[in-house]
Design a binder for these strands. Structure first.
Length: 590
RNA sequence: GGCCCCGUAGUUCAAUGGAUAGAAUAGAAGUUUCCUAAACUUUAGAUCCAGGUUCGAUUCCUGGCGGGGCUACCA
């Protein structure tokens, strides 16, 4: 049991013994003491006051005296208003530091038990990945790593939206205007080439619509009547009927897209364990819905369409099967969820990384799954994240304001390179090492920029800030790590069986923050919140840099030097581990 | 219209209901014969408005105001 739990336990025991009262565990609150007060940890005594029927100051005094008597590591205490500040002994801190620096397993991942699925990315195959996909992928991948670290067996998946009318648009445009162009003979990335034809379709289509409207047709009707619209519908029908020519074209163009995506994913540093394709799963779910209909969970309208009524749950009615018997997105999602549990029978949870514009969709999906009686339904979660805005406003593909993922990664790496060369510290590195470093710094900066904001919140993407390497950035943390490693290289071996000595305030503050890594990581994983990890890394880096600035390490002597080196070492280990959970690498030198 | 989310320094972000609301950036002023100055220090600057619950509210509740999203037999 760690010390904080011990203190909580002891405080609860006090109340039980003296007042025969059981305090709820959520009433026991212990925080790190704010730096303007003396002490290390603070117990909030207000919850005790009612039971003890005394003033907060008295209550604090009594609890403090009891805790000091009970727990050896507590050296003293003070009470300010309703806050009991506990002071821990120097020996406790040295002991804690020595344990961490001498055992190399305190940062090991927890044992992986429950199996969970994390879905992210899940792009359409008609256009390249953009900034929004970057936030999605970085979030989903980080949440996967965090859960794997804190004790889940994580299967990383995506469902690729490889079919449907949007794919046919690219196909049709290529067929009409492509002249047989391929990625290799145009030296174009496959996803970019297909995206080009998607845009081309849209241009021609809108021209047709405009002409029809000009000729007196209503816009709504023109949208339906445009020849290209009819052709694309026809093509979708051919695809569904398995027309060999259409299917071949579909396979060919999707293949191009996958090659392009693979290159993008590789540079992003994300990966998947299991790919699902919508073309395999889009018809699933219908049977499940029909069985639900028999059981009376759903109902049928006169035209034969099948609906679910969620008005008792505060929502409305939702279509599940069209009058013509075809399925909608919701039906497919029901099918794929069930499919996944069939694929992974010991599955405990699915996390869906999908933008918050689909909050309602997932609310409905989870409710339907519950109504269908699947025991695992309540464990499903929607990792809902906010859109990424640009200084110019929303990203809109029509207006060409979409930030392309590949271009952006290229830019941030170029910025890292320019900045590194300006500093000129890399003379000893080979060209390959330098290139690898620029990649690590640039991509790291981008990931950190997108991950340090609470996922649930909409965020602003400022291109200039995203390539900046100063301030609250990934490179700041990476720099701190490299700084630690430089010190450790120069120090060589040192005595890790630390002798007793006192600690400076900045040393103790840093150590205290480092001790908080596990609980922080557990909470972040449970909340699916990588930003908590990013902000923790910034805290640690700031604390270390302040300590580094104020106290000489290599020039110190004896036990003091050993302590400072030990702190440096566990700071580096913690930063590397924490950044690793965000899939951001840290360099030995920079 | 109905439902959901969000309003914190000039700007971008923090703060399980806890002490004097923290950072970064932009602004002003400093620190290097010394372990990596991509650093550090000082300075100025904010909880949309009005009520309520509470020992205590940026946080919870109600009502405004402002912004965004969802509300398709689209995916």
């Amino acid at each position: 049991m760690n010390l904080i739990d011990q203190i909580k336990q002891s405080a609860a025991n006090f109340l039980k013994r003296e007042f025969n009262h059981d305090i709820a565990s959520d009433q026991l609150q212990i925080d790190a003491t704010r730096k303007e007060f003396k002490g290390d940890y603070t117990l909030v005594v207000f919850p005790f006051v009612k039971v003890m029927r005394t003033r907060p100051e008295d209550a604090g005094e009594k609890i403090g005296a009891y805790l000091k008597a009970q727990i050896d590591d507590i050296d003293g205490y003070n009470v300010i208003k309703g806050f009991l500040n506990l002071e821990l002994s120097p020996a406790f801190w040295i002991k804690t530091l020595a344990e961490k620096v001498s055992s190399n397993n305190w940062l090991e991942p927890a044992k992986q038990e429950e199996t969970i699925l994390v879905e992210y990315s899940s792009p359409n195959t008609n256009k390249p990945l953009h900034l929004g996909h970057l936030r999605n992928n970085f979030l989903g991948y980080a949440v996967s790593l965090m859960n794997a670290y804190t004790g889940k067996r994580v299967v990383k998946i995506q469902i690729i939206n490889d079919r449907g009318v949007h794919i046919c648009k690219s196909m049709l445009a290529w067929k009409m205007h492509g002249k047989g162009e391929t990625p290799s003979d145009t030296d174009t990335k496959g996803d970019k080439l297909v995206g080009k034809y998607y845009v081309l379709f849209d241009q021609h289509y809108r021209a047709q619509v405009a002409k029809l409207v000009n000729d007196g047709m209503s816009e709504e009707q023109a949208n339906k009547e445009a020849p290209l619209q009819k052709q694309v519908q026809e093509m979708l029908l051919q695809w569904e009927q398995g027309d060999p020519e259409v299917v071949d074209l579909w396979k060919k163009m999707n293949g191009w897209v996958y090659e392009g995506f693979d290159a993008t994913y590789e540079r992003m540093g994300v990966e998947f364990d299991h790919l699902y394709y919508e073309s395999d799963t889009y018809s699933k779910g219908k049977d499940i819905v029909l069985r639900g209909l028999e059981k009376g969970i759903f109902f049928k309208k006169d035209d034969g369409s099948v609906w679910v009524d969620l008005s008792e749950d505060g929502l409305d009615q939702k279509l599940l099967i069209r009058a013509d018997g075809t399925t909608v997105y919701m039906t497919q999602d029901i099918g794929t969820a069930v499919q996944r549990y069939e694929d992974y029978p010991d599955l405990k949870q699915i996390i869906y990384t999908v933008g918050d514009e689909q909050d309602y969709h997932f609310k409905v999906l989870f409710l339907i799954l519950e109504k269908l009686g699947y025991a695992w339904a309540p464990a499903c979660r929607h990792l809902s994240y906010g859109m990424v805005d640009l200084p110019s406003g929303k990203m809109k593909s029509r207006e060409g304001t979409v930030v392309d993922a590949d271009d952006l990664m290229e830019e941030v790496v170029a910025a890292a390179k320019a900045s590194s060369e300006e500093k000129g510290k890399l003379d000893e590195m080979s060209d390959e090492e330098q290139e690898a470093l620029f990649e690590m710094l640039g991509i790291g900066a981008l990931k950190f920029y997108l991950l340090r904001v609470d996922p649930r919140k909409r965020m602003m993407f400022n291109p200039e800030e995203s390539v900046s390497l100063n301030g609250d950035t990934g490179p700041f943390v990476q720099y701190t790590y490299a700084r630690c490693k430089a010190v450790l290289r120069k120090a060589g071996n040192y005595q890790k069986q630390l002798e007793s000595t006192s600690l400076e305030d900045k040393e103790r503050g840093l150590l205290k923050a480092l001790m908080d890594f596990r609980p922080m990581a557990d909470a972040a994983a449970a909340e699916m919140n990588p930003s908590a990890i990013a902000n923790y890394c910034l805290d640690i880096a700031k604390l270390y840099n302040q300590f580094y600035h104020d106290h000489p390490i290599l020039k110190a002597e004896g036990a003091v030097r050993d302590v400072r080196l030990a702190l440096t070492e566990i700071t580096a280990d913690t930063l590397r581990t924490a950044m690793g959970l965000l899939s951001i690498g840290v360099p030995e030198r920079m």
